[in-house]
Amino acid sequence: MIIEKLIRKLKGDPNYKWESIYTERDLLSVTKVRFAQVIRGLWLRVFFKKCSGLLFIGSNVKVRHGYLLTAGKNLILEDNVSINALSVNGIKLGDQVSIARDSILFCTGIISQKGNGIFIGDRTGISARAYFAGQGGITIGTDVIMGPNVQIFSENHNYADLCTIIKDQGVAKQPVVIGNNCWIGGGATILSGVEIGNGCVVAAGSVVTKSMPANSIIAGVPAKVIKSRADA
């Protein structure tokens, strides 16, 4: 199939195969959407710091401070994605990264406190309605998959002083690091200062408040290690 061969080439994966049978109408509809996304990408890429390969852009995508955004090959930004790259290190997206509809990525909250930035590695897929706050820095590895509604925070408000209102006590920025080959379930929340090792699985709805070792299966509020994947 021509489309299958084309996707193999774009992904650089000679073993890529369709897992379902599609009608000609299905394929025509998909092709039409992707073609429109490529056309939008031709216009948007001129505002990026750097962009390799094709750029697939959905409708109503908003990118601010694109001169601080670096994109690898064949980036997909689905409908209504909002990106604000204003930060010290900007936003860097690897090859074959996809970010699904209604997701928000930003790096600076209060304009007087410039944030750090966000890095997402090759072949990582971010599902719908993700919310990444990169003030303290977010690093996501390669081949990571995420369910919908995942939230990552890299900044906390200070609140220890009872004599000062919380909004006047400043913030504490701590980076979040997610290793390679992780699966983050839908609705998971990852808080500042957390490092999740390579190969971890985070159950849907978990709230991760502390760092986790590699190849752990993690679940709960607050999240804890249920077992190791080596024992699964």
Rank of each mutant, 00 (worst) to 15 (best):
I3P: 00
E4L: 00
K5A: 08
I7Y: 02
R8L: 04
L10E: 00
D13M: 01
Y16K: 01
I21C: 00
Y22W: 09
S29G: 01
V30A: 05
V30L: 06
K32T: 11
R34F: 15
F35Q: 13
F35L: 05
Q37Y: 12
I39S: 03
L42I: 13
V46I: 13
F47L: 07
K49L: 10
K50W: 10
K50D: 06
C51I: 08
I57C: 02
I57S: 04
S59P: 14
V63Q: 05
Y67N: 04
Y67R: 02
Y67L: 01
A71C: 12
L75P: 03
I76W: 13
L77N: 03
E78Y: 07
V81H: 07
N84D: 14
S87A: 14
V88P: 03
V88W: 05
N89C: 14
Q96F: 11
S98C: 12
S98Q: 14
I104P: 00
F106N: 08
I111K: 06
S112F: 14
K114M: 15
G117L: 08
I120N: 00
I120A: 00
G121E: 07
T124F: 09
I126L: 15
A128T: 15
Y131E: 10
A133H: 12
T139G: 02
V144P: 01
M146S: 11
N149D: 13
N149W: 05
N149P: 06
V150H: 02
I152Q: 02
S154N: 09
T164Q: 11
T164Y: 12
T164E: 11
I165N: 03
Q174R: 05
V177C: 12
C182N: 06
G185H: 11
G186L: 09
A188W: 08
G193I: 09
V194R: 09
N198C: 03
G199F: 05
V201C: 01
A203S: 04
S206V: 00
V207P: 00
M212D: 01
A214L: 01
N215A: 02
N215Y: 05
V221W: 14
A223R: 12
